[in-house]
Amino acid sequence: MGFKLLSKLLVYLTASIMAIASPLAFSVDSSGEYPTVSEIPVGEVRLYQIADGVWSHIATQSFDGAVYPSNGLIVRDGDELLLIDTAWGAKNTAALLAEIEKQIGLPVTRAVSTHFHDDRVGGVDVLRAAGVATYASPSTRRLAEVEGNEIPTHSLEGLSSSGDAVRFGPVELFYPGAAHSTDNLIVYVPSASVLYGGCAIYELSRTSAGNVADADLAEWPTSIERIQQHYPEAQFVIPGHGLPGGLDLLKHTTNVVKAHTNRSVVE
């Protein structure tokens, strides 16, 4: 069995187990497998329904001669939608809004960016022009300005110390501490036991640490421990890039980060 097929099978099995364990909360999309990078042309966006009122959005972007996937989250909030992270750029984010209108038909009224990198804030200006209120932590807003990236308009308070959590509509926002970046936030959907790890969490097929220019490698494993301790009931975990899975993604990420750190020390 090929690795790609095995990865998709694991996603399907995880979703099936969740649907059985929580039949009222989960209505997993039966329309197909989780979209992969090879299936999404740059400039297009796919939506994948995880649970009743919960979707991931998947886009792709060219970077350094390669094409990478990027995940975000959409959560229903009454007759409105909360968006977590842009679709990595203005063109993708405009396509995301169009796809949401086509498939869901509810307005996106608020959006949260989970850290300051372009795959999370690139497209904020498109959201703002569409009347979406954009939010991020003060740290993310400051770092985005320093980096020359787009800056969300509103500040999220109460997320300055490791372990801080605040309720934001249908989700809980959690600051686990520094990891992929010093400002990275985690998003949890309690009604569906869905954990969105953003770039602080890796997919299972990833074996290298990737972009760690703004990471705190020493603190990252401790931050992941905080996530595990705060959300032990999480059933569906979405990484910032690639295929979702279960809580095993947290341990896998820790292993990859520690291996990278150990290699760096040896070198």
Rank of each mutant, 00 (worst) to 15 (best):
T140R: 01
F174T: 06
P41N: 09
T182W: 13
A259Y: 04
D29K: 09
V28N: 14
A51F: 13
K4Q: 14
E99V: 12
A133M: 11
E203G: 08
R206M: 04
D183Q: 00
F26E: 14
A94W: 11
N149A: 10
R226M: 10
E101Q: 08
V132H: 01
D214I: 08
S56D: 04
V187I: 08
A130C: 15
G78W: 06
K91T: 05
I238H: 15
A90D: 06
R167P: 06
R46T: 09
T153G: 09
P176L: 07
V67W: 10
T261L: 14
P107A: 13
P221I: 11
Q229A: 12
G169M: 03
V265K: 13
S208W: 04
G122R: 08
L143I: 11
A213C: 10
L106R: 07
V37G: 05
L6A: 08
A133Q: 09
Q49M: 07
F26D: 15
D79G: 08
G123D: 01
A59V: 09
A179V: 02
P138V: 13
T36S: 06
A234S: 08
R46M: 08
H180L: 00
L243M: 03
L47W: 02
T114M: 02
T86V: 11
P244Y: 15
L247G: 11
H154C: 14
A15P: 05
S27R: 13
A209V: 06
I50P: 14
R141A: 08
G242T: 02
G122F: 02
G245D: 05
V171Q: 00
P35C: 14
L249H: 07
I224K: 00
L5M: 04
V187L: 12
V194F: 02
I84V: 11
L10E: 13
V166E: 08
R120F: 00
H260G: 07
H241F: 00
V212S: 13
D79I: 15
T153Y: 15
T14K: 13
A165M: 15
T60Y: 02
T140D: 01
E172T: 11
N255R: 11
S155C: 14
A15M: 15
R76H: 15
Y188V: 07
I100H: 01
L127E: 01
L173R: 00
V37H: 03
L250D: 02
P107W: 06
A111I: 05
A234E: 11
